[in-house]
Design a protein around this nucleic acid. Structure first.
Length: 900
RNA sequence: GGGCGAUUAGCUCAGUGGUUAGAGCGCUCGCUUCACACGCGAGAGGUCCAAGGUUCAAGUCCUUGAUCGCCCACCA
């Protein structure tokens, strides 16, 4: 006996209730010993800013749909939770927050800073947990969240040491991207390039011992203070005589050489370039080749250093102005031209990065990239959609060494120690007590930490207990699937593949599904720093998580980014409401049925009984019951196929139209009188079928709308021991339930009903007006189908009677609607709008005439007949015949009406 | 500079070379019918960006162009 279903659908109450229960009882815990094929899935750590923004919500929605679907199909599923594993990015958030208050984190002191980070983590961790609960994420809640885990730290150290031993990690002095706000090095991927309108300053460098000068062009005049050469192309005729000579660096009065180097572009600027090895990657290389000194003219926070002479202490942009002014007054500025160029900015704080020569830790990428390229080429890792493969290859083939050290205070400390006596570098798993070379005890650990993505790259196996050989690792690794946004293909996906292959000899996942990014209504990319993010908690509370999930799934077509709008969410909120009310209708009447002495329906919950649907009444299964189970089987197969290929929008579309269209609009309306029939033996079968259909529909919908389906499913009588719809089975495809005849017959009846309704609407009749329709069927079979469902047709079409008559009908006496199987005639004594009907018919005539002409032309074409496949030709021929009959009928009616 | 994507109904978007191109929202008309007005029923609404090409057949494949957007890039 079902319990009371509240009249109003209130998603917040339901969602809170089930999210808590699922979490408290840990219902979806992965069991390494459980049978079944394995489905393990990697989810992105929500650590990038510490809050789950709407983009992550798409990750989690898709992942959770697939996890629930696979679990219901009997897979042994594992869902790797998102844990803030490194927290380096967490530091960035706090650094930014402090900066907003005008505090530089370094001024706080290390201890106070770490305390702030912990406070923030505790607070934001709570927010993230709440968001995940709202999403109904069916993950394994036992795993630790939002803490720095010793296991993960151990894996990171292990990887660092092994890479070092293999010569793949080295400490080197190179140009890195330096963020003066965060005061750390950042990787190439962490910089964003923007086209900016700038200038090209042409500066005269006097040649020593002559009155000549050479003109160099630069976009960054302040760096000239650190120039240590001028370079020209080796075969540039303009400058041959100058190679080897010295110039006097203006403002600094330092003599520097003119060198030749092949990287110089003769066609850019003046063909002569100033060389600042400490502040430009190209210049750095030139400096190496010509043994030039490096002069770093800036400090950590991009102010001019003591090496900048009288400009020391100035901000770099202020220094630029002063340098330009000084050059101008010295008559050394030849000209200034406009020039657009790309400027790199810090991905996190937006500060213009400063290329700066610095000693950092690097990973050699080529040897890691090669096997990773091969793995994707072989198809060991399948990337969906396919076109992202190209991007992956492109990036991997042009990969450069990766700077992994960060001058930050939070994260995995680099496991390297420096000997204070002999300067030896010791990389080790445990802190060494003395220098391996000179036995000195004066060891200090590198103060730097590793960047976030270094540890993220280990995610698929470090979370499974690697380097230990754990049961989880053996069972679930390599994982089945990674789902994430395409924006982190390089940051994360590519690096996981490289690290997975290097350390486990396996790819970390068999498939990668890269989904689109979510934008807001203005089309802006979701971004916290720009304040354009949408808070998913707000939307969930407003519309319900089920509606949000369904919206995201329905819009998740690959290819283009998603623009989220409230209107769209609202339409799926209405869908949830529809489900609620349909179920409420069933429960309310079931209650009446049972109290009136009807058969108890509890037995339907067992899988064996379930499999025998649709049920027969008096030895025969009703047409409508055959039909709804045929539609259900079809929908299930389509959903399976769509989810198999990550086509979430298709799957959502199918369940939406199955439930609203087939189930609510037709099936429930069709069987209503049966349900309330006084003949209990007859209504029992109808009840059982309706019940089974509802139950199947809920299971079909569950991955997409977990909360409402759980709530309603729990109201159904269930077999002993059932605790969640998510642990029940997904509907099976049941090929034997596919029933083409029933679908054809119902389609015919639906068409008669729709056309009758159309006539009533066109004639502007009210609902109470009695109509006596006549049907001219083209075959006895059609007539037979209609006769057998006559009562239903009369009721749904709102007709008083339907008699079978031989056409043609007199169009002047009423309205006729036709299709290939029948003519439906509704006589009407009063005048109706002849003009409206005529214009409708003329439009119809026009359409049919054009259509017939095009078909005749095509069928008359011999090449078409000989080359097109037979079913196309045959199909066209039969359609043409149908159109001709239709046209004939339309013409006939036009002629009749014109006589009026 | 290189690469990618998009352009389809008023709006937001689906669309697998084939027979009348679909959905949601919005719009029009009619309904308080005892699950649901977050609803029911019936409609209107399309030069599939442009021009070429391939094909028996193009919204779909190719080329070029236009417009919009994104990613990558050490020309000072």
């Amino acid at each position: 006996m079902p319990k009371e279903i509240p009249k109003a659908y209130e998603p917040q109450l339901i969602e809170q209730k089930w999210a808590k229960k699922w979490a408290d009882e840990n219902l979806f815990r992965a069991d390494v010993n459980a049978p079944g094929p394995v489905f393990s899935i990697v989810i992105p750590p929500p650590n990038v800013t510490g809050s789950l923004h709407i983009g992550h919500m798409l990750d989690h929605t898709e992942i959770d749909i697939l996890t629930r679907w696979r679990r219901m199909q009997g897979y042994n599923t594992l869902y790797l939770p998102g844990t803030d594993h490194a927290g380096i990015s967490t530091q960035r958030v706090v650094v930014r927050q402090l900066a907003a208050q005008g505090i530089n984190y370094r001024d706080l002191g290390r201890e106070a800073f770490e305390r702030k980070v912990w406070e923030w983590k505790a607070e934001s961790g709570g927010t993230i947990t709440r968001q995940m609960v709202q999403l109904g994420e069916s993950c394994d809640w036992t795993r630790e969240r939002f803490t720095l885990s010793p296991e993960l730290s151990r894996a990171v150290t292990e990887v660092f040491v092994r890479l070092y031993e293999d010569g793949l990690i080295y400490r080197g002095h190179y140009i890195v991207n330096w963020c003066p706000q965060c005061r750390t090095a950042i990787s190439d991927l962490e910089t964003v390039h923007e086209e900016r309108q700038g200038h090209l300053w042409h500066i005269r460098y006097p040649i020593v011992g002559t009155k000549e000068y050479v003109v160099v062009a630069t976009t960054r005049p302040e760096t000239m203070l650190g120039d240590t050469a001028v370079a020209v192309h080796p075969s540039d005729p303009r400058y041959q005589h100058l190679i080897g000579k010295m110039v006097l660096l203006p403002l600094m009065n330092r003599e520097i050489p003119i060198v030749d180097d092949f990287v110089v572009d003769r066609d850019f600027g003046t063909g002569a370039v100033k060389v600042t090895p400490a502040h430009d990657p190209n210049d750095f290389e030139i400096g190496r080749r010509h043994n030039l000194p490096e002069i770093d003219v800036m400090t950590d926070d991009a102010k001019m250093s003591a090496a900048a002479g009288k400009y020391a202490g100035l901000d770099r942009f202020e220094a630029r102005k002063r340098v330009v002014a000084d050059l101008e007054s010295a008559g050394l500025l030849e000209k200034v031209t406009d020039h657009t160029h790309a400027v790199g900015a810090c991905d996190r704080c937006g500060t213009i990065i400063e290329p700066r020569a610095s000693t950092q830790w690097f990973v050699k990428m080529k040897p890691l990239a090669e096997p990773a390229i091969a793995a994707v080429e072989r198809g060991d890792v399948e990337i969906v959609p396919e076109n992202r493969r190209t991007e992956y290859f492109e990036w991997m083939r042009n990969i450069r060494d990766w700077c992994i050290s960060r001058q930050l205070w939070w994260g995995h400390r680099i496991p390297a120690w420096y000997c204070g006596d002999c300067k030896e570098i010791i990389v080790a798993r445990e802190a060494p007590s003395k220098c391996a070379k000179c036995s000195s005890g004066k060891l200090t650990q590198d103060p730097d930490v590793l960047e976030t993505w270094f540890s993220s790259a280990l995610w698929p196996f470090s979370t499974m207990g690697w380097p230990d050989d754990t049961p989880d690792y053996r069972k679930y690794y390599p994982t089945s699937l990674l789902i994430t946004g395409y924006d982190i293909l390089f940051f994360w996906v590519a690096r996981m593949i490289m690290m997975g292959l290097k350390f486990t000899s396996h790819v970390p996942f068999r498939q990668v599904c890269l989904h689109s990014l979510v934008r807001n209504a203005e089309g802006q990319k979701m971004s916290k720093s720009k304040g354009t993010g949408i808070d998913p908690v707000e939307l969930n509370e407003k519309f319900g998580t089920d509606a949000m999930r369904f919206t995201l799934a329905s819009m998740a077509a690959p290819g283009t980014d998603i623009v989220l709008s409230e209107e769209r969410i609202l339409s799926y909120r209405a869908f949830a409401n529809k489900i609620w009310n349909a179920a409420r209708f069933v429960f309310m009447n079931l209650d009446k049925y049972e109290t009136a002495g009807g058969e108890q329906l509890d037995a339907l919950a067992s899988p064996e009984v379930r499999a025998s649907a649709p049920y027969a009444a008096g030895g025969e299964v009703a047409l409508i019951d055959r039909w709804i189970f045929s539609r259900l089987a079809r929908a299930t197969a389509q959903v399976n196929d769509a989810l198999e290929h990550f086509r979430f929008h298709e799957a959502a579309h199918v369940v939406y139209h199955f439930f609203w269209g087939d189930f609510c609009d037709w099936y429930i309306e069709w069987v209503k009188p049966e349900l309330l029939s006084s003949d209990r033996s007859k209504s029992a079968a109808t009840w059982k079928n309706l019940f089974a259909a509802v139950e199947n529909a809920l299971r079909l919908l569950h991955p997409f709308m977990p909360f409402i389906t759980e709530e309603l499913w729990q109201q159904l009588p269930q077999r002993e021991g059932s605790c969640s719809i998510a642990l029940d089975r997904f509907p099976e495809t049941h090929p034997e339930r596919l029933d083409a005849a029933s679908e054809e017959h119902i389609a015919l009846l639906q068409e008669i009903i729709s056309l009758a309704r159309n006539i009533r609407a066109e004639m502007k009749l009210d609902q109470k007006q009695r109509l006596f329709a006549q049907l001219g069927a083209t075959s006895p079979a059609v007539q037979c189908v209609v006769e057998r469902s006559l009562d239903t047709v009369l009721r749904l079409a709102n007709l008083s009677s339907l008699s079978f008559t031989k056409p043609p009908f007199d169009s002047t006496k009423g309205i006729v609607r036709s299709n290939k199987d029948f003519d439906l005639f509704i006589p009407y004594e009063a005048a109706f709008d002849v003009h409206a009907e005529l214009s409708r018919l003329r439009k119809e005539e026009d359409r049919l005439t054009k259509d017939i002409a095009s078909k005749v032309a095509r069928l008359g074409d011999e090449t078409f007949r000989s080359r097109a496949p037979e079913h196309i030709v045959k199909g066209l021929e039969s359609t043409l015949a149908v159109r001709r009959v239709e046209l004939e009928k339309v013409n006939e009616r036009i002629v009749q009406l014109q006589r009026i």
